[in-house]
Amino acid sequence: MIRPAQVWLAVEPVDMRGGIDSLSQRIQNLLGTSPCDGSAYAFRNRRSTRLKLLIWDGTGVWLCQRRLHRGHFVWPTADASTVGLTARQWEWLVTGVEWQRLDAPAPIHWRV
């Protein structure tokens, strides 16, 4: 399994019919970087039930797709066009778990 150093999520949904070329172009337009920089780039559909991952492995570009049969991927809502994830957050995201809550600090007003 390929384990990228950094995973970037494109916040806005994309048309899942797009392939390597159209998603690579989207990366260049969103970030101004090359899709061959060693990072992985993830895209989702509108319903957040499918995602595509574009990653360079040093030899070529991989385009992987994952579909959930139940539930949806928890995707960030942010002012930025992309959000970076740690490897741990990525592993939780692809399983459909609400990864944003894993590292959340306890509310200040909460007491035992």
Results as ranks from 00 to 15, higher is better:
Val74His: 11
Thr59Tyr: 12
Gln89Pro: 07
Gly71Ser: 00
Leu54Val: 13
Thr77Pro: 01
Trp92Leu: 12
Leu51Ser: 15
Trp75Met: 05
Tyr41Trp: 05
Asp21Arg: 10
Ala40Glu: 09
Ser24Asp: 11
Glu12Cys: 05
Glu12Gly: 01
Met1Ser: 09
Ser24Arg: 01
Thr82Pro: 08
Trp90Val: 03
Ile2Asp: 08
Ile20Val: 13
Thr82Met: 04
Gly96Thr: 00
Val74Tyr: 05
Arg50Ile: 09
Trp92Thr: 07
Leu102Thr: 14
Thr86Asp: 04
Phe43Leu: 04
Arg70Asp: 09
Gly71Ile: 00
Leu85Ala: 03
Arg44Ile: 13
Trp62Thr: 09
Leu51Ile: 15
Asp37Tyr: 12
Trp90Ile: 00
Trp90Tyr: 02
Val97Met: 08
Leu102Gly: 14
Gly71Asn: 00
Gln25Trp: 10
Glu98Arg: 07
Trp8Cys: 06
Glu91Pro: 14
Ser48Pro: 10
Arg44Leu: 15
Pro4Arg: 09
Val97Glu: 13
Leu23Gly: 12
Pro107Leu: 04
Thr59Phe: 11
Met1Gly: 10
Ser22Met: 10
Arg46Gln: 14
Leu68Lys: 02
Asp79Tyr: 07
Trp75Ala: 01
Gly32Lys: 01
Ser34Lys: 06
Ser34Glu: 12
Arg88Asn: 06
Gly60Arg: 05
Pro76Thr: 03
Cys64Trp: 14
Ile108Tyr: 15
Arg17Val: 08
Ala5Trp: 11
Val14Ile: 04
Val112Arg: 07
Gln28Glu: 15
Ser81Trp: 01
Arg101Glu: 15
Arg111Thr: 13
Asp15Thr: 03
Arg46Gly: 07
Leu68Ala: 02
Arg66Gly: 04
His69Tyr: 01
Thr33Phe: 09
Thr82Phe: 02
Phe43Pro: 05
Arg101Lys: 14
Arg67Gly: 04
His109Ala: 02
Gly60Pro: 06
Arg101Asn: 13
Arg101Asp: 13
Arg26Asn: 06
Phe43Arg: 09
Tyr41Asn: 00
Gly32Asp: 13
Pro105Lys: 14
Glu91Asn: 15
Thr86Lys: 04
Gly19Lys: 07
Val61Lys: 02
Gln100Asp: 01
Thr49Glu: 09
Leu51Cys: 15
Gln65Phe: 11
Ser48Tyr: 09
Val14Ser: 03
Trp8Pro: 04
Ile27Asp: 05
Trp110Ala: 04
Arg47Met: 11
Trp56Phe: 03
Ile55Glu: 12
Phe43His: 05
Gly60Glu: 01
Glu91Leu: 14
Asn29Lys: 07
Met1Gln: 08
Cys36Gly: 09
Leu85Pro: 08
Arg70Ser: 10
Gly32Cys: 05
Met1Trp: 09
Gln100Ile: 00
Trp8Tyr: 07
Gln100Trp: 04
Asp79Leu: 06
Leu93Met: 06
